[in-house]
Simulated assay, not measured.
Amino acid sequence: MRGGSKSSLPPSEQAGPRVMIVAGEASGDLHGANLARAIQRERPEIRLSGMGGDELRAAGVEVLFDAARIAVVGVVEVLHHLGDVLRARKILITEMKERRPALLILIDFPDFNLLLAAQARKLGIPVLYYISPQVWAWRSGRVKKIGRLADRVATILPFEQAFYRRHGYRVDYVGHPLLDTVTTTMSRDGFLEKYDLPGDHPLIGIIPGSRRKEISTLLPIFLSAAERYQAESSHPCTFLLPRASTVDQELLLEHGAAQAKNSLDLRIIDSDRYDLMAACDGAIAASGTVTLELAILETPTVVAYRLAPLTYRLGRLLIRHLRFFSLVNLIAEQEIIPELLQDEVTPGRLCRELQAVVDSEQRRKSMIADFQRLKELLGSSGASSKTAALVFEMLDAAGR
């Protein structure tokens, strides 16, 4: 064990340092799980606990609070879940006080995580912020708070390093974790055969997000757009709706999928998510990490999002300087994929945008070429192992 005395016990039986990982959303849960595995490959004696979901549990992390209970967006939505937010914070702070982790790893989720960082600072617990909040996009004043509360910051986009440097802070650029995880396991023909899908039909992805509010708001509109697209198409289409592990199928059926099956060739698919995305000729997707996943897989996409009216009005005040809201366009600093926000998210408008990106060969080729340039901007792979190396450095420096 690094930084301590040698033990005659095998690594699995040694009382190694305790590390706390806190992720608040599905993407953070996934990236945190990959980091946990990278840590345990090199240092299996390290004990991991914190907040997350099924991915962190599967990676051997003791999950003290299920992040799905507080994974919401917007002021109105947070107020509805305030009790859960306060309970989660109390549980994690109690964990820090009673079991004194040697390191706290925070993954994005800034409104919640920065409060934990402040508490860790009071307790003398070092903080590694992995996947820095998008302070370059909005609320840039937070960079000072992060710089003050975090001992190390690992950024996943190359220009974030320069952004922090301009504000006087040194950070570590580790590359984007999606470059390690967004991979296919079979050919398009193999995917079609496995799910008994017609090879001569265009495949259209319907991806309404992973939160209950996103699905209830966006899925009915996405399915209505799909019905219009099919009605105006000269050939039959197949629509694929991937179901995330955190989403119950009944939720999808309740919010339009059951009825849409009467008019569409709609398939709900529970696994092989990236193979599904790569097989699609086009997709309608909620704004979020999924748009970047689709870009890496080079699937032409239309992105859309709707918020509670109050949340939207407040957001517009905070991010008036931004030209785009989707990750793909923000990173590229140009419009690669069409964006529809708030009142623009209608079945008719979605249908027209989908027709443009799927049915125009010239538009498809141009978008795919832009995706290839975007992947170059994302940098190199190996984010989890590089971040694990930072973890070991911080533990060694603390003598753990």
Rank of each mutant, 00 (worst) to 15 (best):
H201R: 15
I146D: 05
V247R: 08
M20W: 00
A285F: 03
G348Q: 06
R121C: 08
I125Y: 04
L350Y: 13
L374G: 01
R41H: 02
P300W: 03
G4S: 07
G60Y: 05
S216I: 13
L327C: 09
D180Y: 05
C280D: 12
L114T: 14
Y305Q: 14
G28L: 07
D172Q: 13
A308S: 00
F191R: 08
Y305H: 15
V182E: 09
G141N: 00
Y129S: 05
T155K: 10
H31D: 07
T289G: 06
I107F: 04
G147F: 06
V72S: 04
S263P: 03
L179E: 09
A117V: 02
L350A: 10
W138P: 07
H201W: 15
R18A: 04
L115V: 14
L354A: 09
D265Y: 11
I70F: 01
R323T: 10
T181Y: 00
A33S: 14
E333C: 03
G60D: 13
G190W: 07
S234G: 14
F324D: 03
L115H: 13
P220E: 14
V358A: 08
Q134R: 10
L297V: 08
G199Y: 12
P11G: 05
L115E: 08
A258S: 13
R89A: 13
Y305I: 14
T185G: 14
H80Q: 01
R47T: 03
